[in-house]
């Protein structure tokens, strides 16, 4: 009985998925430092810490998800089937990563908006106090 190609599929799937996750996380959290510094209004330490915390959570969540969907219940018999199943899994995971990326961007933008509102409020209070 020919051994199924499932093992080969897993061996291809795992590095691709890990590299993808690393790449998205690297780009996202390298560029989010600007947002963080803006939201936390110059307090560098808490900005970098928040960034690192979000990055850790991002890795945990996405690698966990990738590993969860790894298992292929059906026996992969041919190379054609191998490629089809791999495309489905890796493609689906890419889409999920894209959604996560945009969701994170949305959160960053929302945080920036809230920070700007708070800054304006603080400015207004200062002006009122000065004119009193």
């Amino acid at each position: 009985m020919k051994t199924s190609l499932n093992f080969t599929a897993y061996l291809i799937y795992l590095p691709v998925v890990i590299i993808l996750t690393w790449y998205v996380a690297h780009i996202l959290f390298r560029n989010s430092k600007v947002f963080m510094l803006d939201i936390f209004n110059g307090r560098t330490d808490i900005a970098i810490s928040t960034n690192k915390l979000f990055e850790t959570g991002f890795y945990l969540l996405n690698l966990g998800f990738a590993l969860t969907i790894m298992e292929e219940a059906t026996d992969i018999g041919s190379n054609r089937n191998l490629l089809e199943i791999l495309s489905a899994k890796i493609g689906g995971f890419s889409i999920y990563l894209g959604v996560m990326l945009f969701f994170n961007l949305y959160l960053f933008f929302r945080g920036k908006k809230v920070a700007k509102q708070k800054a304006r409020l603080a400015e207004a209070v200062k002006i009122i106090d000065a004119n009193r």
Partner: peptide
């Protein structure tokens, strides 16, 4: 491979949920 991946995934997802 499958079982190691699955169990590790469960731990990672639990950690992620608690973290957030």
């Amino acid at each position: 491979l499958t079982s190691i991946a699955g169990m590790t995934a469960r731990i990672m997802l639990t950690l992620a949920v608690i973290h957030f």
